[in-house]
Amino acid sequence: MKTKLSTLLAIALLALLPCSLLAQASGNQSFWVHEDVVKPAMVAEYEAVCKELIGHMKTHNIKDAQWITTNTSDNRYLYVSPIANMADLDKPVFAALAEKMGQEAMTALFARMDKCYDVEHDYIINLDTDLSYQPSGINQTPEGQDYRMFHYLFVTPGNRAMVREKMKAVKDLFSSKGSKVYYRVYRSGFGTRGEFLMVAVAAKDAVDHAQMSKANQELFGEDGGKVMWDLFNNLLRYEEYSGMMRPDMAYTPSN
């Protein structure tokens, strides 16, 4: 386990989520995440229904909704929308669509979608620009880089300050070495299952990510191993997932 974690972290660690509807983001933006945990046998049907929904959204050019989408290796589909405050959660996202296409038709569409999963979650995550490393500015949807690695660093109330200090040391390491592996950090917020920092790394594909990771390992050397282990020794637990951004399941209204 120690060897695996050392390799993971020293070569590439860190960076939906998915996750801004804007290519460039500033400040510590908050995002509302709706997550569907889709049954493996229902993935194809689920995606078909979602794309049908998006088709209706585009046909009627619904102005009061927008999101980007990612799906992870464990069949979670995350729909991510920026919010200004908690009051945004009370807005009826599909009210305008129901008016345009008819409540009965929309209800039937969502009924078809609902049978594809038994578990769904809604929660908030917060972009942390102070911990993120992207020298040219935060870009959460870099062109041609739809592959994602998501690293979940779980903490406790008692060690969150220490973990933050160690994360700053990681950023200093990446910056001082001029690393080409860029990452964005998100803090868990209201409604999440446990307290964590989620780090998202973008790449062209799995091969590109592996090559970037190997180059990063060689760049950091022994210095990287020490800094990463200082961080890992303070975590409650660590989880890693691969995923893909899904522009075909995202929605932005036209002007």
Results as ranks from 00 to 15, higher is better:
2 K>S: 12
3 T>N: 11
7 T>L: 14
8 L>W: 02
14 L>D: 10
15 A>R: 03
17 L>P: 00
22 L>W: 05
25 A>I: 14
26 S>A: 11
28 N>G: 04
30 S>W: 07
30 S>F: 09
33 V>T: 01
35 E>W: 00
39 K>W: 01
41 A>T: 09
41 A>F: 07
41 A>Q: 14
42 M>W: 01
45 E>Q: 12
46 Y>R: 06
46 Y>C: 04
50 C>W: 08
53 L>G: 13
54 I>D: 08
64 D>Y: 06
66 Q>F: 14
68 I>R: 15
68 I>V: 15
69 T>N: 14
69 T>A: 11
70 T>E: 11
81 S>W: 05
86 M>H: 06
90 D>A: 11
93 V>P: 00
97 L>Q: 09
103 Q>G: 06
103 Q>M: 12
104 E>A: 13
107 T>D: 15
109 L>P: 07
110 F>A: 03
110 F>E: 03
113 M>F: 03
115 K>C: 11
115 K>Q: 12
116 C>G: 13
117 Y>N: 02
119 V>K: 13
120 E>A: 05
127 L>M: 14
142 P>W: 09
144 G>Q: 10
145 Q>A: 11
149 M>A: 00
153 L>M: 12
154 F>V: 03
160 R>E: 09
166 K>S: 01
167 M>D: 06
167 M>L: 15
172 D>W: 01
173 L>C: 10
179 S>V: 10
179 S>K: 01
197 L>C: 03
198 M>T: 09
202 A>T: 02
203 A>I: 03
210 A>G: 05
210 A>Q: 04
211 Q>A: 12
213 S>L: 05
214 K>L: 14
218 E>H: 11
221 G>Y: 10
226 K>I: 10
227 V>H: 04
228 M>I: 02
229 W>F: 10
230 D>V: 04
236 L>C: 04
238 Y>L: 14
240 E>R: 14
240 E>K: 03
246 R>F: 05
247 P>R: 11
250 A>D: 03
251 Y>Q: 07
